[in-house]
Amino acid sequence: MIKECYLGIDVGSISTKGVIIDKNNKIIHSSYLWTEGNPMEAVKRVINNLENDLECTNIAIMGVGVTGSARRLIGSMVGANMVKNEITAHAVGTLSIFPDVKTIIEIGGQDSKIIILEDGIVNDYAMNTLCAAGTGAFLTSQGKRLGIPIEKFGEIALNSSQPVGIAARCTVFAESDLVHKMQAGYKREDIIAGLCDAVVNNYLNNVARGKKIKPPIVFQGGVSKNKGVIKSFERALNEKIYVDKQGHLMGALGIAILSKNNSLGKLFSFKITTEHFETKGHTCPRCPNHCELISIYKNNMLIDKWGNRCDRGLE
């Protein structure tokens, strides 16, 4: 018998995530890889990975959902039946695993958000809009400066007994503070633990400002893989922080569930990986607004176009 499944894709700035779920919202297969600045290629690779995993099982993908910052582009590329923002997708995904979650902390590569839930519905949310100091990109760049791969960051931070204080207000200040602490001869693990604290403080002071953080708290996004940051959060909030093994896939899981719930299903074929997609950008010369128009071509056929802000329509 053919099993009905749904595909969820979350295209972030740093990483691209794909999951295939069954009818009971269980993840059957997942793939996680770097976007590397090329979301279309990344999605093809994710779909390829998933296809290879599936080879022997007999399933049909009944619908595709796309979320993340490249959702519109990828949505028209794969012919998604559900294209939604990350906040809703993360909330839905997390609720399917932690039904009574009250606070979702999400720190990704380029942005961070907080989602406050009450009785299983989103009650309030915020996204960072100002600065990348409280995100994964900041940790990665500082890791490079210290010569430590980001994967080992957490382990090293846990060894510290006395994290040093690092200014958390702004990336630039944090960086000069860090250099100073390095030159002053502080231990490396203390500096790294200090960086984790800085990310947490920045998060609590910027994104979560004015929000009531109530337990149970779930922490997700790429940075949730970092044990040092988890510990810093526990210290700062005095609460247990739940981190799911699949925390980085929550957005993809959520959008797959939303795609499943959308009655307009659309059979998806893996052939997409062999098709040729191309985007062309050009600036509309008709008025001083200079709208940047993007067109997507599938095998040299125009399939979608957007970017103008007037009623003139797209030609």
């Binding site: 923002n85 990350e86 519905i121 009650n123 949310y125």
Partner: peptide, 16 residues
């Protein structure tokens, strides 16, 4: 960014 937050806001009040 505006569109994302607006969409999320819409989803939220719809759920509520």
């Amino acid at each position: 960014g505006i569109r994302t937050r607006l969409e999320a806001f819409y989803d939220m009040i719809k759920m509520r």
